[in-house]
Simulated scan of single mutants.
Amino acid sequence: MSTVAKLLARKERLLAQLESDPGPNEREEIERLLAQIETALSLLAPEDGAGPSDA
């Protein structure tokens, strides 16, 4: 499994946890982890995001 696939799977699990109405401390930790995953994904796959245009 690729790094991107692993990150996406972890993101999916965290989002499911977030939907289960966690307490405030757990919610904060989940949101922190999600932010880290988003950063890692943007660094690993910059061509998928909004990059500089050719114009």
Rank of each mutant, 00 (worst) to 15 (best):
E29C: 07
D54C: 09
E26H: 09
A16R: 06
L33V: 08
D54H: 13
L43D: 14
R32W: 01
Q17K: 03
G51I: 12
K11M: 00
L43G: 13
L44Y: 04
A5D: 09
D21A: 15
L34I: 02
P46M: 11
G51Y: 11
R27M: 03
G51L: 14
A16M: 00
A9F: 04
A16Y: 04
L7V: 02
A45M: 15
R32A: 04
S20H: 13
L44K: 03
L7Q: 02
L43R: 15
Q36A: 15
D21R: 14
A16E: 12
R13V: 07
A40N: 05
S2L: 11
S53T: 12
P52S: 07
A45W: 09
Q17P: 02
P52C: 10
L34K: 06
G23F: 03
L43E: 15
E29Q: 10
Q17M: 13
R10I: 00
A45F: 10
D48A: 09
R13E: 09
E47P: 04
R32N: 14
A55D: 15
A5G: 02
L7T: 04
E29K: 12
E47H: 14
P46L: 08
T3M: 14
S53H: 02
A55R: 12
R10H: 03
K11S: 01
A16H: 01
E26I: 13
I30E: 07
Q17S: 04
K11I: 00
Q17E: 12
A35R: 11
R13K: 09
S20D: 12
L44G: 08
A5R: 12
S53K: 09
T3R: 15
A16W: 06
L43A: 14
L8C: 06
E31P: 07
A9D: 01
G49Q: 04
L8N: 12
E28Y: 07
G49K: 08
E26V: 10
T3H: 13
A9V: 01
M1Q: 11
K6D: 00
L33M: 12
S20Y: 04
A40G: 07
S20L: 12
I30L: 07
L7P: 06
P24I: 09
P46S: 03
A50E: 11
D48C: 07
E47Y: 06
A5M: 14
R32E: 07
Q17R: 14
P52W: 15
S42P: 00
K6G: 01
A5T: 10
E29G: 05
E38F: 04
P22I: 08
E29F: 13
E38P: 04
N25R: 15
L34D: 05
G49T: 03
E12I: 04
P22K: 08
M1G: 05
E31A: 00
D54W: 12
D48M: 13
R13G: 04
P52Q: 15
M1V: 11
S2V: 06
E31C: 08
Q17Y: 02
E29N: 11
L18P: 01
L8H: 12
E12S: 10
R10V: 00
E47L: 13
L15S: 06
P24C: 03
K6R: 10
P22Q: 03
S20W: 12
P22S: 04
L34Q: 01
D54L: 14
A9N: 06
A50T: 13
G49S: 11
V4C: 02
R32T: 13
R27T: 02
R32L: 10
L34H: 03
A55H: 08
T3F: 14
L41W: 09
L18S: 09
S2D: 13
D54M: 11
L41S: 08
